[in-house]
Protein backbone atom coordinates (compact mmCIF):
# COMPACT_ATOMS: atom_id res chain seq x y z
CA UNK A 1 0.00 0.00 0.00
CA UNK A 2 1.33 3.43 -0.85
CA UNK A 3 1.96 5.58 2.23
CA UNK A 4 -0.37 8.47 3.10
CA UNK A 5 0.63 11.85 1.70
CA UNK A 6 3.26 10.21 -0.45
CA UNK A 7 2.99 13.07 -2.92
CA UNK A 8 3.20 15.78 -0.25
CA UNK A 9 5.61 18.61 -0.83
CA UNK A 10 5.04 19.09 -4.56
CA UNK A 11 2.69 21.43 -6.44
CA UNK A 12 -0.97 20.34 -6.72
CA UNK A 13 -0.82 19.88 -10.49
CA UNK A 14 2.03 17.44 -10.09
CA UNK A 15 0.19 15.65 -7.25
CA UNK A 16 -2.87 15.11 -9.46
CA UNK A 17 -0.59 13.66 -12.12
CA UNK A 18 1.08 11.26 -9.71
CA UNK A 19 -2.21 10.14 -8.17
CA UNK A 20 -3.73 9.66 -11.62
CA UNK A 21 -0.80 7.63 -12.87
CA UNK A 22 -0.48 5.46 -9.77
CA UNK A 23 -1.68 1.82 -9.84
CA UNK A 24 -3.86 0.60 -7.00
CA UNK A 25 -2.53 -2.44 -5.10
CA UNK A 26 -5.87 -4.40 -5.47
CA UNK A 27 -5.45 -4.17 -9.26
CA UNK A 28 -2.03 -5.78 -9.03
CA UNK A 29 -3.50 -8.41 -6.70
CA UNK A 30 -6.19 -9.29 -9.27
CA UNK A 31 -3.57 -9.64 -12.03
CA UNK A 32 -1.53 -11.98 -9.86
CA UNK A 33 -4.49 -14.03 -8.52
CA UNK A 34 -6.26 -14.51 -11.84
CA UNK A 35 -2.97 -15.55 -13.49
CA UNK A 36 -3.72 -13.22 -16.38
CA UNK A 37 -0.02 -12.82 -17.01
CA UNK A 38 2.82 -15.31 -16.85
CA UNK A 39 5.17 -15.13 -13.86
CA UNK A 40 7.91 -13.39 -15.81
CA UNK A 41 5.44 -10.84 -17.10
CA UNK A 42 3.97 -10.30 -13.62
CA UNK A 43 7.50 -9.68 -12.36
CA UNK A 44 7.97 -7.21 -15.15
CA UNK A 45 4.67 -5.46 -14.35
CA UNK A 46 5.58 -5.30 -10.65
CA UNK A 47 9.05 -4.08 -11.58
CA UNK A 48 7.44 -1.39 -13.65
CA UNK A 49 5.08 -0.35 -10.85
CA UNK A 50 7.83 -0.34 -8.25
CA UNK A 51 10.05 1.44 -10.69
CA UNK A 52 7.38 4.09 -11.44
CA UNK A 53 6.79 4.52 -7.71
CA UNK A 54 10.51 4.88 -7.06
CA UNK A 55 10.79 7.27 -9.96
CA UNK A 56 7.92 9.39 -8.62
CA UNK A 57 9.40 9.44 -5.12
CA UNK A 58 12.72 10.35 -6.64
CA UNK A 59 11.06 13.13 -8.65
CA UNK A 60 9.32 14.55 -5.58
CA UNK A 61 12.64 14.55 -3.78
CA UNK A 62 14.21 16.09 -6.81
CA UNK A 63 11.65 18.93 -6.83
CA UNK A 64 12.32 19.61 -3.14
CA UNK A 65 16.04 19.65 -3.90
CA UNK A 66 15.46 22.07 -6.73
CA UNK A 67 13.71 24.47 -4.33
CA UNK A 68 16.59 24.26 -1.87
CA UNK A 69 19.25 24.53 -4.51
CA UNK A 70 17.55 27.66 -5.91
CA UNK A 71 18.08 29.38 -2.55
CA UNK A 72 21.64 28.10 -2.39
CA UNK A 73 22.37 29.34 -5.87
CA UNK A 74 20.88 32.72 -5.06
CA UNK A 75 23.14 33.26 -2.06
CA UNK A 76 26.10 31.56 -3.67
CA UNK A 77 26.01 33.65 -6.81
CA UNK A 78 25.51 36.82 -4.76
CA UNK A 79 28.59 36.08 -2.62
CA UNK A 80 30.58 35.01 -5.68
CA UNK A 81 29.77 38.26 -7.47
CA UNK A 82 30.62 40.31 -4.35
CA UNK A 83 33.97 38.56 -4.14
CA UNK A 84 34.61 39.14 -7.81
CA UNK A 85 33.69 42.86 -7.49
CA UNK A 86 35.97 43.21 -4.44
CA UNK A 87 38.87 41.54 -6.24
CA UNK A 88 38.42 43.58 -9.42
CA UNK A 89 38.00 46.70 -7.30
CA UNK A 90 41.24 45.91 -5.47
CA UNK A 91 43.12 45.39 -8.74
CA UNK A 92 41.62 48.59 -10.12
CA UNK A 93 42.64 50.48 -6.99
CA UNK A 94 46.21 49.08 -7.24
CA UNK A 95 46.48 50.26 -10.84
CA UNK A 96 45.02 53.62 -9.93
CA UNK A 97 47.48 54.30 -7.11
CA UNK A 98 50.42 52.69 -9.00
CA UNK A 99 50.98 50.29 -6.16
CA UNK A 100 54.60 49.22 -5.49
CA UNK A 101 56.84 48.19 -2.56
CA UNK A 102 57.32 51.82 -1.49
CA UNK A 103 53.67 52.75 -1.63
CA UNK A 104 51.83 53.98 1.40
CA UNK A 105 51.02 51.08 3.81
CA UNK A 106 47.36 52.09 3.88
CA UNK A 107 47.21 51.66 0.09
CA UNK A 108 48.91 48.28 0.36
CA UNK A 109 46.56 47.18 3.18
CA UNK A 110 43.49 48.38 1.26
CA UNK A 111 44.56 46.67 -1.96
CA UNK A 112 45.61 43.32 -0.47
CA UNK A 113 42.84 43.40 2.10
CA UNK A 114 40.18 43.78 -0.58
CA UNK A 115 41.93 41.33 -2.92
CA UNK A 116 42.26 38.69 -0.17
CA UNK A 117 38.67 39.20 0.99
CA UNK A 118 37.46 39.17 -2.59
CA UNK A 119 39.22 35.88 -3.30
CA UNK A 120 37.73 34.37 -0.13
CA UNK A 121 34.25 35.55 -1.08
CA UNK A 122 34.62 34.25 -4.61
CA UNK A 123 35.60 30.80 -3.37
CA UNK A 124 32.85 30.91 -0.72
CA UNK A 125 30.31 31.75 -3.44
CA UNK A 126 31.41 28.77 -5.53
CA UNK A 127 31.30 26.59 -2.42
CA UNK A 128 27.75 27.69 -1.64
CA UNK A 129 26.61 27.00 -5.17
CA UNK A 130 27.89 23.45 -5.33
CA UNK A 131 27.64 22.58 -1.66
CA UNK A 132 26.18 19.14 -0.90
CA UNK A 133 23.26 17.99 1.21
CA UNK A 134 23.55 15.82 4.27
CA UNK A 135 25.24 13.58 5.35
CA UNK A 136 28.54 14.50 3.75
CA UNK A 137 27.22 18.01 3.04
CA UNK A 138 27.57 18.69 6.77
CA UNK A 139 31.34 18.10 6.72
CA UNK A 140 31.63 20.00 3.51
CA UNK A 141 29.85 22.99 5.06
CA UNK A 142 32.05 22.85 8.17
CA UNK A 143 35.17 22.84 5.99
CA UNK A 144 33.74 25.73 4.00
CA UNK A 145 33.01 27.83 7.10
CA UNK A 146 36.39 27.03 8.64
CA UNK A 147 38.23 27.83 5.41
CA UNK A 148 36.37 31.11 4.96
CA UNK A 149 36.95 32.20 8.57
CA UNK A 150 40.60 31.20 8.33
CA UNK A 151 41.16 33.23 5.17
CA UNK A 152 39.31 36.25 6.59
CA UNK A 153 41.35 35.93 9.80
CA UNK A 154 44.50 35.97 7.68
CA UNK A 155 43.35 39.17 5.96
CA UNK A 156 42.41 40.82 9.27
CA UNK A 157 45.70 39.72 10.83
CA UNK A 158 47.57 41.15 7.83
CA UNK A 159 45.67 44.46 8.04
CA UNK A 160 46.41 44.71 11.77
CA UNK A 161 50.12 44.02 11.75
CA UNK A 162 51.27 45.26 8.34
CA UNK A 163 51.92 48.88 9.41
CA UNK A 164 53.94 48.17 12.58
CA UNK A 165 54.80 44.56 12.97
CA UNK A 166 55.27 43.03 9.52
CA UNK A 167 58.25 40.86 10.50
CA UNK A 168 59.18 37.19 10.88
CA UNK A 169 57.41 35.04 12.23
CA UNK A 170 54.19 37.16 11.96
CA UNK A 171 54.40 37.16 8.18
CA UNK A 172 54.58 33.35 8.20
CA UNK A 173 51.59 33.12 10.50
CA UNK A 174 49.52 35.42 8.29
CA UNK A 175 50.56 33.55 5.15
CA UNK A 176 49.82 30.18 6.79
CA UNK A 177 46.40 31.20 8.13
CA UNK A 178 45.31 32.80 4.85
CA UNK A 179 46.77 30.09 2.61
CA UNK A 180 45.22 27.30 4.69
CA UNK A 181 41.83 29.04 4.47
CA UNK A 182 42.10 29.42 0.69
CA UNK A 183 43.32 25.81 0.34
CA UNK A 184 40.38 24.53 2.38
CA UNK A 185 37.92 26.51 0.26
CA UNK A 186 39.53 25.41 -3.03
CA UNK A 187 39.78 21.79 -1.91
CA UNK A 188 36.16 21.85 -0.80
CA UNK A 189 35.13 23.19 -4.22
CA UNK A 190 37.03 20.40 -5.94
CA UNK A 191 35.61 17.72 -3.62
CA UNK A 192 32.05 18.95 -4.11
CA UNK A 193 32.53 19.11 -7.86
CA UNK A 194 33.65 15.46 -7.91
CA UNK A 195 30.68 14.37 -5.75
CA UNK A 196 28.32 16.36 -8.00
CA UNK A 197 29.74 14.62 -11.03
CA UNK A 198 29.19 11.17 -9.49
CA UNK A 199 25.62 12.07 -8.46
CA UNK A 200 24.82 13.36 -11.91
CA UNK A 201 25.99 10.08 -13.41
CA UNK A 202 23.80 8.08 -10.97
CA UNK A 203 20.80 10.24 -11.80
CA UNK A 204 21.33 9.70 -15.51
CA UNK A 205 21.56 5.95 -14.93
CA UNK A 206 18.29 6.04 -12.98
CA UNK A 207 16.55 8.10 -15.63
CA UNK A 208 17.64 5.70 -18.37
CA UNK A 209 14.91 3.03 -18.50
CA UNK A 210 16.91 0.00 -17.57
CA UNK A 211 13.81 -2.04 -16.62
CA UNK A 212 12.57 -2.19 -20.15
CA UNK A 213 12.32 -5.90 -20.65
CA UNK A 214 8.59 -5.83 -21.53
CA UNK A 215 6.92 -3.16 -23.59
CA UNK A 216 3.13 -2.62 -23.55
CA UNK A 217 2.89 -4.70 -26.75
CA UNK A 218 4.88 -7.48 -25.10
CA UNK A 219 2.47 -7.49 -22.16
CA UNK A 220 -0.53 -7.61 -24.54
CA UNK A 221 1.09 -10.51 -26.38
CA UNK A 222 1.65 -12.26 -23.05
CA UNK A 223 -2.04 -11.82 -22.15
CA UNK A 224 -3.08 -13.29 -25.51
CA UNK A 225 -0.58 -16.15 -25.12
CA UNK A 226 -1.84 -16.93 -21.62
CA UNK A 227 -5.46 -16.87 -22.82
CA UNK A 228 -4.56 -19.23 -25.66
CA UNK A 229 -2.78 -21.53 -23.22
CA UNK A 230 -5.93 -21.63 -21.12
CA UNK A 231 -7.87 -23.22 -23.98
CA UNK A 232 -9.14 -26.67 -23.24
CA UNK A 233 -7.36 -29.51 -25.07
CA UNK A 234 -10.61 -31.26 -25.88
CA UNK A 235 -12.66 -28.49 -27.35
CA UNK A 236 -10.22 -25.72 -28.19
CA UNK A 237 -12.41 -23.33 -26.22
CA UNK A 238 -11.39 -21.47 -23.09
CA UNK A 239 -11.32 -23.76 -20.08
CA UNK A 240 -12.40 -20.92 -17.83
CA UNK A 241 -15.71 -21.73 -16.21
CA UNK A 242 -18.11 -18.90 -15.49
CA UNK A 243 -20.08 -19.54 -12.34
CA UNK A 244 -23.45 -17.91 -11.86
CA UNK A 245 -25.15 -16.98 -8.65
CA UNK A 246 -28.73 -17.96 -8.06
CA UNK A 247 -30.51 -14.95 -9.52
CA UNK A 248 -33.43 -13.23 -7.92
CA UNK A 249 -35.43 -12.48 -11.04
CA UNK A 250 -38.02 -9.77 -10.82
CA UNK A 251 -39.99 -11.36 -13.68
CA UNK A 252 -43.35 -12.92 -13.07
CA UNK A 253 -43.85 -15.76 -15.53
CA UNK A 254 -47.03 -15.86 -17.55
CA UNK A 255 -49.49 -18.76 -17.28
CA UNK A 256 -48.38 -20.35 -20.56
CA UNK A 257 -44.72 -20.19 -19.57
CA UNK A 258 -45.45 -21.97 -16.29
CA UNK A 259 -48.01 -24.51 -17.41
CA UNK A 260 -47.97 -25.26 -21.11
CA UNK A 261 -45.26 -27.64 -22.33
CA UNK A 262 -42.79 -26.67 -25.03
CA UNK A 263 -43.88 -27.65 -28.54
CA UNK A 264 -41.61 -30.21 -30.13
CA UNK A 265 -41.12 -31.17 -33.73
CA UNK A 266 -40.35 -34.82 -34.38
CA UNK A 267 -38.38 -35.55 -37.54
CA UNK A 268 -37.60 -39.05 -38.78
CA UNK A 269 -33.86 -39.39 -38.56
CA UNK A 270 -31.66 -42.36 -37.65
CA UNK A 271 -28.63 -40.13 -36.93
CA UNK A 272 -26.18 -42.66 -38.31
CA UNK A 273 -23.57 -39.88 -38.37
CA UNK A 274 -22.89 -40.65 -34.69
CA UNK A 275 -21.31 -43.99 -35.61
CA UNK A 276 -19.50 -42.46 -38.60
CA UNK A 277 -18.11 -39.67 -36.41
CA UNK A 278 -16.84 -42.20 -33.86
CA UNK A 279 -15.10 -44.13 -36.64
CA UNK A 280 -13.63 -40.98 -38.13
CA UNK A 281 -12.35 -39.68 -34.81
CA UNK A 282 -10.88 -43.07 -33.85
CA UNK A 283 -9.15 -43.31 -37.27
CA UNK A 284 -11.00 -46.43 -38.41
CA UNK A 285 -11.80 -45.09 -41.84
CA UNK A 286 -9.76 -45.40 -45.01
CA UNK A 287 -8.46 -42.07 -46.28
CA UNK A 288 -8.03 -41.57 -49.98
CA UNK A 289 -5.79 -38.57 -50.07
CA UNK A 290 -2.88 -38.79 -52.50
CA UNK A 291 -1.14 -35.85 -50.79
CA UNK A 292 -1.18 -37.52 -47.38
CA UNK A 293 -0.14 -40.89 -48.89
CA UNK A 294 2.78 -39.27 -50.66
CA UNK A 295 3.85 -37.37 -47.54
CA UNK A 296 3.62 -40.58 -45.47
CA UNK A 297 5.78 -42.48 -47.99
CA UNK A 298 8.36 -39.69 -48.06
CA UNK A 299 8.42 -39.54 -44.27
CA UNK A 300 8.81 -43.31 -44.01
CA UNK A 301 11.67 -43.29 -46.57
CA UNK A 302 13.42 -40.44 -44.76
CA UNK A 303 13.11 -42.21 -41.41
CA UNK A 304 14.48 -45.49 -42.86
CA UNK A 305 17.38 -43.60 -44.42
CA UNK A 306 18.16 -41.91 -41.14
CA UNK A 307 18.08 -45.24 -39.24
CA UNK A 308 20.41 -46.81 -41.86
CA UNK A 309 22.84 -43.93 -41.55
CA UNK A 310 22.73 -44.19 -37.80
CA UNK A 311 23.45 -47.93 -37.94
CA UNK A 312 26.17 -47.37 -40.48
CA UNK A 313 27.90 -44.81 -38.33
CA UNK A 314 27.57 -47.15 -35.32
CA UNK A 315 29.23 -50.03 -37.19
CA UNK A 316 31.93 -47.63 -38.41
CA UNK A 317 32.54 -46.60 -34.83
CA UNK A 318 32.79 -50.22 -33.71
CA UNK A 319 35.22 -51.02 -36.54
CA UNK A 320 37.43 -48.06 -35.60
CA UNK A 321 37.43 -49.06 -31.95
CA UNK A 322 38.21 -52.69 -32.78
CA UNK A 323 41.11 -51.65 -35.04
CA UNK A 324 42.53 -49.37 -32.36
CA UNK A 325 42.35 -52.16 -29.75
CA UNK A 326 44.04 -54.61 -32.17
CA UNK A 327 46.83 -52.12 -32.86
Amino acid sequence: MLPDDWTAGVPNTQRYKYLGNSVSPPFVQVIVERKILSQSCINSVIDRIVYSYAKTIYYIKYLKDVMESKIRYYFGSMVFLSGLVLSIGAIGFAIMVHLNRTSDPSEIITTYGFLGTGLSFTLLGINLMISQRRPYGLYSNLVMIFGFLSSICGVVFFATIYSNNWVYPNVSYVAFVYASGICLLSGNVFGNAVVKLIEERSRLLLETDTINQYSIEDIEKEVEKTLNESLSNDSGFSAFSLDMKEDISSFVLGKALKESPQNKIEVKDSIREVECLQNTISGKIKVTDSGIDLTSKMLSATMKQSVLEQNKSLSDKLKTKFNSIRR
Binding site: S250, F251, V252, L253, G254, K255, A256, L257, S260
Partner: peptide
Protein backbone atom coordinates in the same frame (compact mmCIF):
# COMPACT_ATOMS: atom_id res chain seq x y z
CA UNK B 1 -54.43 -8.03 -21.92
CA UNK B 2 -53.13 -10.65 -19.49
CA UNK B 3 -56.36 -12.66 -19.64
CA UNK B 4 -56.23 -12.60 -23.42
CA UNK B 5 -52.59 -13.69 -23.46
CA UNK B 6 -53.29 -16.47 -20.95
CA UNK B 7 -56.26 -17.79 -22.88
CA UNK B 8 -54.30 -17.72 -26.16
CA UNK B 9 -51.43 -19.60 -24.42
CA UNK B 10 -48.96 -16.88 -25.35
CA UNK B 11 -45.60 -16.92 -23.59
CA UNK B 12 -44.96 -13.77 -21.62
CA UNK B 13 -43.33 -12.39 -18.52
CA UNK B 14 -44.48 -9.49 -16.40
CA UNK B 15 -42.34 -6.92 -14.67
CA UNK B 16 -44.12 -4.04 -12.99
CA UNK B 17 -46.66 -2.61 -15.42
CA UNK B 18 -44.90 -4.00 -18.47
CA UNK B 19 -45.32 -7.33 -20.26
CA UNK B 20 -42.69 -9.00 -22.42
CA UNK B 21 -44.19 -11.31 -25.04
CA UNK B 22 -41.67 -13.97 -25.95
Amino acid sequence: AQNMLDSAKILYTQKGNMINVL
